[in-house]
Computed example of a mutant assay.
Amino acid sequence: MALQRLTAKNLTVFTKADLTFGKGLNVIVGENGAGKTHLLKLAYSVIATFWEEGRKPSPTTPTKTHLQVKLADKLVNVFRPEALGRLTRRKPGRERCDVSLKFTDSKHNISFSFATNSKTEVALEVTPSSWLEVSAAYFPTRELLTIFPNFVSVYEGHYLEFEETWRDTCLMLGEPLQRGPREKRIQELLAPIEDAMGGKIELDKVGRFYLSTPNGRLEMPLVAEGLRKLGMLARLVATGSLLDKGFLFWDEPEANLNPMLIKQVAKSILSLSSSGIQVFLATHSLFLLREIEILTSQQPFDGLSARFFGLHKDADGSVSVSQGDSIDEIGDITSLDEELAQSDRFIEA
């Protein structure tokens, strides 16, 4: 199961966005304010709604009336606008946002829209005939292991100004460890991550995470933030949430990581992609992009499918999308050009 295509008209900064995804790794590149996170959150909101509704006890077949409300709720809780209509592109007068997602199995396809005055529901034009049976995980730029204890219960019992992606991911972090025939594959994926962290992630009975090393256990707040981000990835692999199938959305995985850890993150991401996880990254890190290009040309990742998407700010304030199978095909990205220019200045100096 994979997301093949996403189209959005009049969504936030986009007049029109039309993205064709690969089954493996998909990398969205752009400077700050170009809408990278918005595209990730849009795709995640739809997929997470399908998965959450499908795993409820005795789920019924998707209906237009039910989905129109549930999807609107998820969009508002993930994006956190004042109202659903605030996600439409800012223009004088009333505007309408149109969204369509197509999957490898057409029974999951969906199209919907909402206007600037929409509040509690979307208008469904194409209704899926089946729920998704695979999970979706969203990693925000901040690690979540340190806030995990009691976060879900507090979030669900109070109104907090946190994106629902935090709550969703914390729920997955608290899942029990996977046992059975898939343990060998889990250990294969975990080994290089645990080697980079210098230990294993453990969850105690009261909901606190630790990094267990040969020298003892470290409370998660005492662990470097970059290692905590690797710890989130390790935990979801260990629980089976990221194994063989499903979706991973990761916003700026390079944030707060040193180059050595970025190299490990890139390798882990490609390992997940090659195992059947469809991965979506948002980044403006030249180092991460170069590492991905280097690794995809080497064993054991040679031939792994990857798609790149460049977001470009236009003169009218909107953002356009270019795409291709290599970084060279997505046009110039200002933030990447600045990094290259600095290297030139350093050599000259």
Rank of each mutant, 00 (worst) to 15 (best):
E202W: 01
F309H: 02
L248A: 03
A2Q: 10
R182G: 00
A115S: 15
R185E: 07
S320A: 14
S129F: 09
V46D: 08
I347C: 06
K184D: 03
L132I: 11
H284D: 12
A282R: 10
H284T: 11
G246N: 06
I186E: 04
G180V: 11
F151S: 13
D314F: 03
S153C: 07
L75A: 04
V13G: 03
G317R: 05
E53A: 06
E175W: 00
S271V: 05
R179H: 10
S130K: 06
L336F: 03
Y44I: 09
L11R: 04
D328R: 13
S100P: 13
P92D: 03
S212N: 09
E293T: 08
D316W: 07
L289S: 13
S285E: 11
K41Q: 07
F280R: 11
P140S: 08
V154P: 04
V69N: 04
D344M: 11
L257A: 11
F14T: 10
V134S: 15
F148D: 08
L203S: 06
G174T: 12
T239Q: 00
E163W: 01
F14L: 15
K229Q: 15
G303K: 08
P140R: 01
L190R: 10
F209C: 06
F151I: 07
L286G: 07
L84W: 10
A34D: 04
H158W: 08
F112T: 10
E219M: 14
T296P: 01
A17N: 01
D73K: 09
E53S: 02
V78S: 01
F162R: 03
